[in-house]
Design a protein around this nucleic acid. Structure first.
Lengths: 125, 125
DNA sequence: TTTATATTTAAGAAGTTGCTTAAATAAGAA
DNA sequence: TTCTTATTTAAGCAACTTCTTAAATATAAA
């Protein structure tokens, strides 16, 4: 931002602005971490994957590809993002890898699943 | 997806796959709508804006620019996205426009604010 | 070992996001 | 009206996302 003659309102409440700055500082990396997780669920495909894992307990990339109607590499790349942020984990059974939700971020994601069910009921009924 | 000889596992559970497809269909546009909202909060700047509006009740683009340390047009463009999805609303007072959270999506976003507070406490204490 | 199956990885293209700068709009004060 | 302040809008650009296709990896079966 090269704009030094920035707006700084005449009636700006300096105390409020400082208080806000401190609020952000006090909460340190929490914003980055949380927004990172929300960005995962902010993609429709990944939200569906999370919802399906909640419902079915575990699913493999192949089945997800079939269910979602998209290529296996595309699904695999979404799963990797979810795994990288500790949202899901995989267990191998022969050639197949079954993915499931990790407990770690479930408290955050759980309300979304209810939100989906509730919202579609309103539309459907 | 041009890949017709798709993976379709030998041991795939056809019933489970069909059940999943129906689950997605039954919930119609809910996934698109919810992921759209989550994508808003999935940006660190916008998450901070939402958090600040929750804390301060209302703030103008100019103050937000000052608090967040970014240009006014950049802030304004984030506010527009939030307004377009009915998450915030503005009221004019002279030349200043004060933005605040709308009740509409508050149930969804409220847990995030608690999450931020809790998470930063863990780190700080 | 060769072949088939399940998954991942990598390179590249197309689309989206989020900033910048400059110009436009809108209201208040001189 | 002209000037200042607050905000929005628009064009352009760099970075990021998400897909595609092809190749690599890993396990199991012939």
């Amino acid at each position: 931002m090269e704009n030094n003659q920035s707006c700084i309102r005449v009636f700006a409440d300096k105390d409020q602005i400082n208080h806000c700055r401190e609020l952000l500082q006090a909460n340190g990396s929490a914003f980055g971490q949380l927004s990172g997780l929300l960005a995962l669920a902010g993609n429709e495909v990944r939200l569906k994957i999370l919802f399906l894992l909640e419902e079915e307990n575990e699913l493999c990339p192949c089945d997800l590809s079939d269910i979602l109607g998209m290529s296996i590499p595309a699904v695999s790349q979404h799963l990797r993002k979810l795994k990288d942020k500790n949202v899901i984990e995989g267990r191998r059974e022969g050639q197949t890898i079954f993915y499931s939700l990790k407990q770690e971020q479930l408290t955050l994601f759980h309300p979304f699943f209810k939100h989906i069910i509730n919202n579609s009921n309103i539309v459907t009924v």
